[in-house]
């Protein structure tokens, strides 16, 4: 493995981490708002708050890790993406900020107003939509470089079916991932009603997810044939991912082993995400930027990797402790214990 590949693998892994934990968070907010509308709030609020409260800040760090790390390993990305993403990234940031702080205000401060929960739920859908446009842009064709100054072509971006397919995929996977996780969580806490409700949502959102994923493949075959062909070369990875998807849906359908269902869903996304990313290489941004010509110097790369390993040695035990105490602790999940400050 070259240093470039190690670097991008580290970053991609953290982006995957963010994808999963943030989806759970965003989806939960949406379901909460939706249940308010339909008068079933009581069922979900407890479950959602018990899970989210101790971990929301950790979710955010996954994101920060990714965008700080990419500047470290691939400094040229600052030039291309930094210049062109000003507007979409700023909008995502503002939404993230409102959502994150509102969450803290509401949880630790005082109970707010229904309207806020509502906005909170909706913001959770706009954020992945805004962030997912970065994936679209990376496929190439949306950035013009005039006099060394890159700029984003909004007309092309908003009129491309690829953009919208990716937006829809991001939304439905957020809801799907979140629903599967919450089904499991509610089941562990012994809450029948919530389990059934979340299971229903999970089954509903499974199909749009898989259909748009296939739609994106079709779209890519014309938009970026190079990436498409690379993906076809590793068709078997997408095949395994699809089998795992079937497995999850089957378990949900049979009301069996929700824990296993969630792990299979994790596997499905993990494999598809890495296969997609692998096929995208060596490009970070078609056709301007590859991992090779944007890579940092060797001294910095080695320093970052050493720091990363040392950091992981610290982080993994801590994360394990967090999960042990709040995710896998039956007393806590069931709500028998409340030791909040």
């Amino acid at each position: 493995m070259t240093l470039e590949i190690i670097g991008i693998t580290v970053l991609w892994t953290f982006l995957f981490g963010y994808l999963i934990v943030a989806s759970i968070d965003f989806g939960a907010g949406f379901f909460n708002a939706y249940s308010l509308l339909t008068g079933r709030q009581r069922i979900l609020t407890n479950i959602i708050q018990r899970y989210l409260s101790p971990v929301w800040e950790v979710t955010n760090v996954f994101f920060v890790f990714f965008f700080v790390g990419i500047i470290g390993f691939f400094p040229k990305t600052a030039f291309y993406y930094g210049t062109t993403l000003l507007v979409p990234a700023s909008i995502a940031l503002i939404l993230l900020a409102i959502r994150g702080s509102y969450y803290a205000f509401e949880t630790y401060g005082s109970r707010g107003h229904k309207g806020y929960s509502f906005m909170y739920g909706i913001a959770g859908l706009f954020i992945p939509a805004a962030l997912s446009t970065v994936l679209t842009i990376s496929e190439g064709g949306f950035i013009n470089v005039v006099n060394d100054a890159p700029s984003l072509d909004y007309d092309a971006l908003f009129s491309s079916p690829l953009t919208w397919a990716i937006v829809v995929l991001s939304l439905s996977s957020v809801l799907y991932i979140s629903a599967v996780f919450l089904t499991w969580y509610a089941n562990t806490s012994g809450d029948r009603e919530a389990t059934n409700l979340m299971r229903k949502y999970a089954l509903i959102w499974a199909f749009p997810t898989i259909i748009t994923a296939i739609g994106i493949m079709v779209e890519l075959s014309s938009h970026n044939p190079e990436h498409y062909n690379n993906m076809l070369d590793i068709w078997w990875a997408f095949g395994i991912s699809f089998l795992l998807f079937i497995g999850t849906v089957w378990l949900l359908f049979k009301k069996k082993n929700y824990g296993m269902a969630f792990w299979m869903l994790g596997g499905q996304f993990l494999i598809a995400f890495f296969a997609y990313g692998f096929a995208h290489l060596p490009y970070l941004l078609y056709p301007y930027l590859t991992i090779y010509d944007s890579f940092t110097n060797e001294a910095m790369a080695i320093a970052l990797i050493v720091a990363f390993i040392a950091g992981l040695a610290l982080l993994i035990p801590s994360l394990y402790l967090l999960l042990r105490l709040f995710l896998f602790n039956k007393d806590y999940v069931r709500g028998n214990k409340d030791n909040h400050a």
């Binding site: 950790v58 920060v64 691939f74 940092t296 970052l304 982080l315 402790l321 105490l325 400050a341």
Partner: peptide, 28 residues
């Protein structure tokens, strides 16, 4: 990014560490 990315990167680990234990501290 070429020269001073290291402390920026290490900062994210500091955040991680703080965030995880803050969650634990508050709820125990």
């Amino acid at each position: 990014g070429n020269i001073i990315a290291l402390p920026l990167f290490m900062e994210t680990f500091a955040f991680f560490f703080e965030a995880i234990f803050l969650g634990i501290y508050l709820y125990t």
